[in-house]
Amino acid sequence: MIEASQLAKNYGSFSAVKDLSLTVRPGEVLGLVGPNGAGKTTTLRCLAGIIPATRGSIRVAGHDLAADPVAAKRALAFFPDEPRLFDYLTVRQHLAFVARIYGVRDHEALAQPLLDEFEIADKADQLPGELSRGMKQKLAIACGLLHGPAVMFFDEPLTGLDPLGIRRMKNSIIARARAGAAIVLSSHLLHLLEEVCTHVLILKRGEKIADGTLAEVAARFGSAEGGVNLEEVFIRATGGTEH
């Protein structure tokens, strides 16, 4: 469960996120959409406790992120757009390190299925420098999933993955949502959001333009036309120049 209320993030006089409120329940996948500079990554970083919010409150898995960040972070995983790996830890050593940080007991038994799922089991003793961009992305995701997070934040999760990797990633997100995880993902790939997300939230210049289920948002911006896809909704909602 993710709950944000009146979330705001300022950089000096510039407001990157303005009074944003959202709720993501277990089993839901919220897609964050918006033009470049809309505040998607800033929002994700605030929700994951990476950067402090200027105002507002955030609760992750029932824990107030400001008051009890350790408990909140124990329940979440953040997946940045660029995999941030340690140059000198092998795939297996990354998992061992993360296991100690999160106190994951018997992590070898948990790690092996993840390595298999992301097809990096044969790279277990290799360093990130020896892995392709997609492999690094998979390792970062495996590290994030090791402690079985109830809340997940994905920032452009498909960047660098091959078509098969994209398929697996989509299935993995859907499977984890069905297993009860609350997920927020930010992406410019609107077809991904259509396939994966149960809800969508459109941001523009840090402000929420619309949110709700895909059908609700489509109904709001689709006017009387039928069959309007998310791309059309996005362009209309953000004031694009296509129409």
Binding site: G49, I50, V70, L76, F78, R84, I101
Partner: peptide, 13 residues
């Protein structure tokens, strides 16, 4: 420092 965003997601003080 370049991993600071990842370090900050760890459940640690």
């Amino acid at each position: 420092l370049t991993h600071a965003d990842i370090l900050k997601t760890y459940p640690l003080r």
